[in-house]
Design a binder for these strands. Structure first.
Lengths: 107, 107
DNA sequence: TAGGCATATCGTAATATTGCAATATAACGA
DNA sequence: TCGTTATATTGCAATATTACGATATGCCTA
């Protein structure tokens, strides 16, 4: 198969895993790290910065956008892509919950 | 292709994305959430808990282990799988860095 | 040591992802 | 309107992932 059996999991779990999945590619982490350092986050700069072809970068941006990790606002000929900090906080909250609820007697 | 061009990214980025990738599947999130609630984290329970076949679960556990997210210690006939909180903290640190370094003037 | 449980590995079919060339679209300035 | 520039979409080949039946391995108990 190759198909994930997502129908057997809760909506919440599927959503959360989808966001993590979007971060599960080096190019997409690199994009995020680059966005963080830029004043203006424009796709052209990414094409110059990353050793990947323009269509490939566009595709990765689309996936980050679909996952809600970045937002893009049209700005003339170019597009300004930025991090969506709310989504980041959701992941953060999940990871934090793992730490606090952990049973200390286990392992 | 289908092959990720990981050789063009830094070791750090590749590692980080690999951990996120391991979390990018609903079954693996479900496993982690289940581990969190158990006193004894044994694979048999997972087979009962999740609507997936035993080999599939075993495979997911292996991936979580490879990514360093969980640790397994043999305990007689069964195995005790537990969360590796250090790895969780690494992800946490990355997400936190995104929040603090963000340029407020952008978007 | 034989049988029974718990877990891992193998093999494989179905599907998904990645990367890119070619091409499309869309906005701007001359 | 015509280029030009910036980004998106399409189509496709190569590879990766997912799920699971069959089977192996390894520990325990009788």
């Amino acid at each position: 198969m190759g198909t994930t059996k997502s129908e057997v999991f809760s909506e919440e779990i599927n959503e959360l895993s989808a966001v993590f999945k979007a971060l599960g590619h080096p190019a997409r982490i690199a994009i995020i790290q680059f966005l963080r350092t830029q004043e203006k986050c424009i796709c052209t700069d990414l094409v110059k910065e990353l050793p990947l072809a323009q269509p490939t970068i566009s595709q990765h941006l689309k996936e980050l956008k679909n996952a809600g990790i970045i937002q893009g606002s049209v700005s003339g000929t170019s597009i300004c892509y930025c991090l969506n900090l709310e989504k980041i906080s959701e992941l953060d909250a999940f990871l934090a919950s793992l730490k606090y609820d952990q049973n200390p007697s286990c392992c």
